[in-house]
Amino acid sequence: MDLLRSIGITEIVFQLMLVNAILGLSIYLTLYTGMFSLANAGFMAIGAYVGVVLTQNYDLPLWAALIGGMIAAGIVAVPIGLPVLRLRDIYLAIATIGFGEVVRILILNFDTLASSISGESVQLTRGALGITGIPKITETWQLLLFLVVTVYILVRLHRSRFGRAMAAIRQDEQAAATMGINVVYIKNTVFIFSAILAASAGVLKAHLTRTISPGDYGFDQVVNILAFAVLGGTSTWLGPIVGGFVLTALPEILREFKQYRGIVNGVILLVVIVYLPGGLVNINGWKRLWRRIRGQPSVIERIQQNTRSG
């Protein structure tokens, strides 16, 4: 523990590493099923605001707020997922970014909107000022437990019929459909799971950082969440966890670099992605890197070189 602290990983850093690992898993679920969805920040916002309103305005305990936030996000995910998941790749990505931005703007203007509809002054989300003074009640063991349970469910899922269907859709959606897999059902269910996971991270994080505002859930946050999964790798559930850990801890470990921190951070990110395009948790990537270092091109690369010169 002392060793970790000496390199900048204090308890709060570790707690946010766990939160970000959960966020990484939430986007991993959709990516694993071949869906490039970026709605996670929007669902995280829904979870955070619903959760905080439940603990602050209704004095509910954290676990109840957690369930409340998850249910709210799950309910919103249904009407969003049905039309949007017909889209693919970058189109899906942009549509879901659009969803996230609309959520952010609605939260920003919620009080004005609610006041003009109800005719009396509503102060719930407090606009850009955000909600402050939220007690810090999330504990490390709760985060750990939540992560372990999530991973357990994921592992069980991967081994189930449902999990194999997810992988099949990622491989080839049309082939999966011909094989009798209900693609629409699987995709929407995964999307809802992903939303619920993002929302839970939102609730847990809000009760760590003591304050939330709409700006926390914008485009930057989505890009961060995506980076957790891609840097870690999306071939197994371990990837996004490692990605979330590394990307949260790295800037703290690099604090000693002072004004060069951003540059060092950017270089590391670039080098990892360029040399390990499958992510940190991808054994083939490391093997290929090892061969490169020793100067032996892989079979595939040799073939590629031949094709190019020809």
């Binding site: 900048g8 204090t10 308890e11 709060i12 850093v13 946010l16 950082t209 304050t211 926390d216 800037p251 703290e252 604090r255």
Partner: peptide, 13 residues
């Protein structure tokens, strides 16, 4: 905000 929390924790604790 996260980094402000980290920085404050590092400095104070």
């Amino acid at each position: 905000r996260d980094q402000a929390i980290f920085a404050m924790t590092k400095l104070v604790e």
